[in-house]
Design a binder for these strands. Structure first.
Lengths: 284, 284
DNA sequence: AAAATATTGAAATGTCGTTTCAAACGGAAT
DNA sequence: ATTCCGTTTGAAACGACATTTCAATATTTT
């Protein structure tokens, strides 16, 4: 059908004359070039001519360059590899995308494996029973907090997500026993989050944490601990990419679980929310 | 890069004019044809013209027939994928997790397939060259905007992410030609975003959009269009789960690409940022 | 009904894959 | 070494086919 182009080239490599071999090697190193370049381009890139490219196609037993293109396209749809891979300088767009995809998927898979179902269930019930949920995170985790708040508001569960430590401290000082403080910190060592969690614990308010897997100050302060997978982050990724996806993923699960637990209620809320938004937008 | 052509066609099918739709249906029925036929051939087989085939490619956001060929070739090798699965009432925690995982991964995979590398490259260069980047989104997309802003600030690229339409309007009214407005809207029809994009266009400010795949007001207002995969969203998911993951994923790719383009600079910035944060935290 | 807009395919155009061919090369025979 | 013969090579000519243009037609709007 439509693949095996690379394998063909590999098998043929030794039997090829110099000019064609140059092309072949170029393609093996950088297969997606074939998809975006013209025959002449490739010829030049391999320090030979376009004619050699065509001859290579013929040598492989293909009908022409279009044929090769199609087969290589097929080869490139390989299942994404496992494991985290860091991005190097001077990397091609194609390869950045491949690696980001693979890393993103990996972090979700890994986080799935980390899930402790008993803990998850307790979290869902605690949140469902709560009067108010106070999400708190700083920086990238602050954004996750905002997102979580939005979700809960949609199913008419009161939620806050401020980033001002003092403000949140006041909030917790006045919180009821039915409130829940939800601390988010990838490292688990963000000092602001630690302070807030400590305060909540002192006040006897229930606490939930979301951190990377492992022992951390924030997690140890929490009644219920939720985790995302930890992956040794290299310089680039430390600007928080996959970790955030995983945090969102866990939040999704929490939200969907809560929603499922009270399906009917939720459906109605979402409908009401939609109506409210439509009302504001269209004034009718 | 090499797949998703069929999905693109499926998503676009309804928005296509008659002649293009005939082509689209022919391809969906018999994708293999695309690989062995010329544009004219296909035109005739679908009882229309070759020009319509090219128009279809353009309508799909592709650069031409070659692009379509390559993407369909990719689709044909791929094992049939499992689609999105909605969450039912009374579902077990385990099964909610399974479905969320599978949906999350699917939306990332699908979004990868939608990527137009030339458009991506243009986006990266435009952003890299920009003096200021103004992200704008409402609701869940507003959070993506905030996240993107944080990321750019980390590599000392000026960025804003306000949700107040009037404020942003003022900002754009005073923007320079070196600024970029980045509109985020899953549906592509959020009125506030449309207004801001229109304003930017009038003012001659460059625009980039991030929407679900397909024709939409926001996308058509943008100089550079980026897409996440579209999936018919069921009630629960419409509370925006997978779509947001996909948006973040695309943003990650943009960020990592920008970072790679200017590796040295970035490394320094990230280090400086770390130091700045440490300074604030520990006062030393 | 008229005007404006969108859609359509035939023909013109231009890009790019493919073929041709003369020159260069390499090895074997003289 | 020199000549001969088969192979390899890239520049340029060629031709196929993707793409654009445009005038005609259909569709929607006013």
């Amino acid at each position: 059908m439509a693949a095996g182009g690379l394998k063909m080239i590999q098998n043929m490599l030794e039997q090829l004359p110099a000019s064609e071999r140059k092309i072949a090697e170029l393609i093996l190193e950088n297969p997606q070039t074939v998809l975006n370049s013209t025959v002449q381009d490739i010829g030049v890139q391999a320090h030979t001519s376009g004619a050699a490219v065509i001859r290579l196609c013929k040598s492989l037993g293909l009908n022409g360059f279009q044929d090769l293109k199609v087969r290589i396209a097929g080869d490139l749809v390989k299942p994404v590899e496992q494991g985290y891979r860091d991005i190097e300088p001077g990397e091609s767009f194609f390869s950045i995308v491949q690696k980001t995809t693979s890393n993103s998927i990996q972090s979700i898979r890994d986080s799935e494996e980390m899930i402790n179902y008993e803990e998850l269930e307790r979290a869902v019930h605690t949140l469902s029973a709560a009067q108010n949920v106070h999400f708190f995170g700083i920086g990238a985790s602050g954004i996750i907090a905002k997102d979580a708040q939005q979700k809960l508001l949609r199913i008419h569960k009161n939620a806050t997500a401020f980033t001002d430590t003092h403000l949140v401290a006041t909030l917790i000082a006045n919180a009821s026993q039915e409130d829940v403080v939800f601390g988010i910190s990838h490292s688990g060592e963000t000092s602001e989050v630690i302070k807030i969690m400590t305060l909540a614990k002192e006040r006897g308010v229930k606490t939930i944490s979301l951190t990377k897997y492992g022992q951390s100050s924030v997690a140890s302060l929490a009644d219920i601990k939720l985790f995302t997978s930890y992956s040794g982050e290299a310089p680039f990724r430390s600007a928080a990419t996959s970790s955030r996806l995983a945090q969102l993923y866990i939040m999704d699960i929490l939200f969907l679980s809560m929603a499922t637990v009270q399906y009917e209620d939720t459906i109605n809320s979402i409908d009401k929310t939609r109506e409210a938004i439509r009302f504001i937008k269209e004034g009718k």
